[in-house]
Write a protein that binds this DNA or RNA. Structure first.
Lengths: 211, 211
DNA sequence: TTGACCGGTTATGTATACATATAAAGGATA
DNA sequence: TATCCTTTATATGTATACATAACCGGTCAA
């Protein structure tokens, strides 16, 4: 724990929040975390400030930090933003993906079809599918922006690792349609499909959360 | 300088970088800045880390901070991202702006027509025009994302406060066309126009910079 | 001549003590 | 009893000392 302690703590906290170990509203006190990690307040403090800037923590009474709470409306707002950015990425990808990237996308799609009902495996393949589209857009800034926004949604998805079989099937269909549109280079159709795809996963999530 | 020193320093540095007082590549040493502001290293350090996270500073040899340098390709990447996000915002605004917001947008457009050749005044009106569209989209996350990206471009625009009369005129025309499309509620046309508008200002900027 | 090694220099990284702000609780007073 | 002021507890904010990493330049040996 000698070097880059602050970075490690930041990563640990991000992971912890995204994986649901820290739930929204839970206090993030400097001293408590410092003891927990066996370091001084200084690196913890730095990590907390970075969390705040990355929209994972908020300040409360006495300026105390806590894991950011979200209302249902915030979640909708966030998912819409993700959808718009990812739709833009996908539209760019439809025009710009290299031949190799198109083949890779197809391969990932096939993997998704082949993994059966293993929700965990499908989740990983799903992430690669979206990452591949992000890469295909050939715009670093926009795909980093998308990654930031997506990570914020992760806080809410983590609690619901399992998806029901119906959503898994419809997700596959949507991925297939998206892949077709991208391979045809139809940017407008791609944009529209991606927006619908993200909206669908939002609806599934709210369904599960009962928001 | 009693409270929120770190915040003040952060704001000062952001402003300084965006306004060109600190040029890209210039070192940002903790001790030097601490002396300059008459505080200890601690708040300066916090400000620098925030700058790094916000993509305004980079690390160099000996982990030293300096103002982020950008290559021409990065600038193009950045402007494209801004264009895509703002196009998405504008498309949302075309569908969602309240009647009051539409009237306000028209009013701002008229102000822009009326300010003559005062480039500085037009710059302020231009900012309000775009902010109004951002508000009209009714998506906080997306408009915050846009604001972040736009601030990054500010570093490059600041050095070129004056625009030539031709760009000022064409900007007016593009704003007028955008306003028409938004008032008609034509989301697709709005998206396309906004993308072109941002691309135009990028070309003007590269022209001036001679990149 | 070149290569590696090894202090010196200089930057940030971390620990700790103290300062300060503020919400909450409690007592005095109308 | 309600309200306002004071006190107090507890969080972060800041200053400072010391630790640590890494580049740089010189020296020595092959």
């Amino acid at each position: 724990m000698a070097v880059r302690t602050a970075q490690n703590i930041y990563d640990t906290l991000i992971t912890g929040i995204a994986s649901g170990q820290f739930s929204p509203g839970e206090p993030l006190a400097e001293v408590a975390l410092a003891e927990r990690f066996g370091v001084s307040r200084t690196p913890v403090r730095e990590a907390l400030h970075r969390l705040e800037q990355a929209n994972f923590a908020e300040r409360g009474p006495r300026r105390a930090f806590f894991v950011r709470k979200m209302r249902a409306s915030d979640l909708e707002d966030l998912f819409e933003a993700v959808g718009e950015v990812e739709a833009a990425l996908a539209a760019l990808a439809a025009r710009r993906m290299t031949e190799i990237q198109r083949r890779q996308l197809q391969a990932i799609l096939e993997e998704g079809k082949a993994c059966g009902d293993d929700a965990r495996a499908y989740g990983a393949i799903n992430a690669r599918f979206h990452a591949q589209i992000g890469q295909g857009a050939h715009n670093t800034t926009l795909s980093e922006t998308h990654a930031d926004l997506t990570m914020r949604t992760q806080v809410w998805r983590s609690a619901n690792f399992e998806r029901d079989a119906r959503r898994l099937a419809s997700s596959r269909e949507e991925h297939a349609a998206l892949t077709d549109a991208i391979l045809e280079g139809d940017a407008d159709a791609t944009r529209s499909l991606m927006r619908q795809h993200v909206a669908s996963s939002f609806l599934t999530l709210t369904d599960i959360l009962g928001v």
